[in-house]
Amino acid sequence: MEQWAFWLWEEHSDQIEITLRLIVATVAGMVVGINRDIHNKPIGMRTLALVSLGSAIVILSGSVYEGLHFGQDAVSRVVQGILTGLGFLGAGSILRGKDGMEVQGLTTAATVWIAAGLGVTAGLGAWFITVAGTLVTLFLLTYGTQLEEKLIRFFGRSERSREGTLED
Rank of each mutant, 00 (worst) to 15 (best):
G100Q: 08
T108W: 04
G62V: 09
L124Y: 01
A110H: 04
T137G: 02
G90E: 04
K98E: 04
S63R: 13
V78N: 02
A109C: 08
L106Y: 09
T137H: 02
L138S: 01
F139I: 15
G119M: 08
A110Y: 03
L135V: 15
V78H: 04
L138N: 00
F128P: 13
G62Q: 14
F128Q: 11
F88D: 07
S63Q: 13
A116M: 08
V103I: 15
I114V: 14
K150V: 13
G81W: 00
V131E: 04
V75S: 04
I94L: 02
I94T: 05
A110M: 06
S63H: 12
L95N: 02
T121A: 15
Y65T: 13
A74D: 03
Y65P: 02
S61N: 05
L106T: 10
T137M: 13
L141M: 07
L118G: 01
Y65H: 11
L138K: 00
A116H: 05
G71P: 00
V112W: 00
E149P: 06
K98M: 03
T84H: 14
G100M: 08
I94G: 01
V64I: 12
R96I: 15
W127T: 14
A115D: 02
L147D: 04
A91K: 06
G81P: 15
T107W: 05
E102N: 12
E66T: 13
S76F: 12
R96H: 03
V103F: 10
V131S: 05
T134I: 12
G62I: 08
F88P: 02
I152Q: 08
H69T: 12
L83E: 08
W127D: 14
G92M: 12
T107N: 08
R77E: 10
T111N: 07
L60F: 11
T111A: 14
L147P: 06
G105Y: 01
Q104H: 02
Y143L: 14
Y143K: 11
T107V: 13
G90Y: 05
Q104L: 01
T137Q: 05
A115S: 14
I82P: 06
Q146F: 10
W113L: 12
L86Q: 00
L118Y: 07
T142I: 00
T134V: 11
S61C: 07
I129Q: 12
G133K: 15
V79C: 05
G100L: 07
Q72K: 10
L135D: 05
T107S: 07
G117C: 14
A91N: 07
